[in-house]
Design a protein around this nucleic acid. Structure first.
Lengths: 226, 226
DNA sequence: GCAAAAGTGTTCGGAGTACACCCATGC
DNA sequence: GCATGGGTGTACTCCGAACACTTTTGC
């Protein structure tokens, strides 16, 4: 075997698809690049992996440094390898998607914050690199995942109402779901606990406030929504 | 931005989990290493990515050079990043799993073929590196995938019988499935076409021979086996 | 009391499950 | 004709889909 360091290796980048849910809208966080290539175009936040870093450490570095976020849900998405995907040279991109509650963070606080902006996933601008492919795959994954994993709790406040959870599912899946059937399925799965408190302030009946049931194992869950 | 080549990059390997189905057994193809590290231990076939290669090109190179295989079903599995996963240094592994029909290939024909061997997935030896993790994830993925995607056709001959397909599903999922209900679900999904021919030679009634319906879109498929 | 939204219950149909029965083949 | 395994059909059950009613709140 050859000496290990004699191989030439491609650069390795981590790119993130950061999803946020706010005011009945699913959004993705994009950065406006200040340098070439793709100067002044929108791209996903990312960074090059450093030699001693794990993927998740790089993710955290991106989230903290560029976006001022921490402690968010992360899941590896896919690795992209098109030799032409970066005009600067060979760059492999290992991608993750993140689910955050935008109300918890002020993205204007980060170092490149002037350039960070939430976009409705339905109205994204043209993206540099192959980031449109990455974003498409992330959205597809999220839509599939939500049917068998309680991802909603990463996007909502700690306490939330049944109608709020219901709207989140309708928004992400892009379909309308009967609220009564949805309610029964969610309650039967025992994924949420009624706290007894109610959300006040609305003009109508005050809905119950629920919290996520952290005790429950997160397997064996299937929503089965047509 | 720094000069692009000034970054130090980890090595990038591709590792493959090659599944084969033969004689009612799901097997995985392993290589016995001749060099350190993990000399004389079993590992997944793999290679380092070359600068101009795509992931799939590296996969094909591994399959052809080391195993004498070509034209197999491949799907990206996951990327592994533990900084300590390779004692030689920092190596990222992008993994794929492959589905092959062992009867189509003679693995003794490859360059390292003396060291290649099929193992029943239930009886795998200790694996070097973090390859046990990779294998576990591949098997888990395969079990999930078979429920909503017709992967079986990659593992069987072009013509196959309903009992053969049935046994494949029972074998991969590790459960028993009512053969009559299985039959109806598969036929209702219109994934296979009865060729009219029958498999001869058995002592009992000669089962019909089916082929895969390549016309059919491979989405919207759900097997729903409990 | 009225409108709007939230909580609760009921009916219906289809798909999954658990079965039993018949057919073809080699001995 | 007999054993073995393959092809076909049927009743039951449960869950998802569709839908109506009651309750709470602010005005």
């Amino acid at each position: 075997m050859k000496a290990f360091s004699s191989y030439q290796n491609p650069a390795l980048a981590i790119d993130l698809v950061v999803f946020g849910y706010h005011e009945k809208t699913l959004s993705v966080l994009l950065l406006n690049r200040k340098e070439a290539p793709f100067k002044d175009q929108w791209t996903l936040p990312g960074a090059f992996l450093q030699m001693e870093e794990s993927f998740l450490q790089t993710c955290s570095r991106i989230l903290q440094t560029k976006l001022g976020m921490d402690n968010v849900y992360l899941e590896q998405l896919y690795s992209f390898d098109d030799p032409a995907r970066d005009p600067r040279g060979r760059v492999i991109s290992v991608t993750y998607y993140a689910l955050v509650n935008p109300s918890k963070f002020q993205i204007v606080a980060g170092q490149m914050a002037n350039d960070a902006q939430w976009f409705n996933v339905q109205e994204t601008p043209a993206l540099g690199f192959d980031h449109q492919d990455i974003f498409d795959k992330a959205l597809q994954r999220l839509k599939a995942k939500i049917l068998y994993f309680p991802v909603g709790f990463q996007l909502l406040d700690e306490l939330f109402t049944m109608p709020e959870l219901h709207e989140l599912y309708e928004c992400i899946l892009g379909i309308s779901i009967d609220r009564r059937n949805f309610r029964r399925k969610i309650l039967d799965a025992e994924y949420i606990i009624n706290t007894g408190a109610k959300r006040e302030g609305s003009q109508n009946r005050h809905p119950d406030l629920y919290k996520f049931n952290k005790q429950l194992k997160q397997n064996n869950f299937q929503l089965n929504i047509s």
